[in-house]
């Protein structure tokens, strides 16, 4: 089931070849697998994002390996150079095979 995700470009107005900050957040519990269930004494199974991929147009420009040590509802921000008008697509994948995609358009 895809999760809720949000992408925000900072600043909102930019020109060609400007550096813009991309703020991303996804609603994900990020279970580490270390938390014990109080009733049964067993561990709550790990469920966290393992990879984030960023595509600008057809090109994969950034990718990340994420572990359970990242906080719940992970917020990640990075920069891109706005060189062309193209969709910026971010794909989050978790260890349960869950895939979430979100696209924003970069217009220069």
């Amino acid at each position: 089931m895809p999760k809720n995700a949000m992408i925000k470009i900072n600043p909102k107005e930019y020109k060609k070849d400007d550096l813009v900050r991309v703020d991303t957040v996804i609603m994900h519990p990020m279970e580490t697998g270390l938390v014990k269930d109080k009733e049964s004494g067993k561990y709550i199974a790990a469920e966290h994002i393992t990879s984030v991929e960023v595509f600008y147009g057809d090109e994969k420009i950034t990718w990340m390996e994420v572990s359970g040590s990242v906080s719940a509802n992970p917020f990640i921000s990075f920069y891109i150079k706005a060189t062309k008008s193209a969709p910026l697509k971010i794909v989050w994948k978790d260890n349960k095979g869950d895939v979430t995609e979100k696209v924003v358009d970069i217009k220069v």
Partner: peptide
């Protein structure tokens, strides 16, 4: 990396020149 966590390898980010700047900001445990 976080040197005393259970999994110390927290986040790895791979860049290409299209990033313009090697920068990462996030929240960790």
């Amino acid at each position: 990396l976080t040197d005393k966590n259970h999994n110390t390898r927290t986040l790895s980010v791979y860049f290409t020149p299209a990033n313009g700047k090697a920068y990462i900001s996030t929240r960790i445990r």
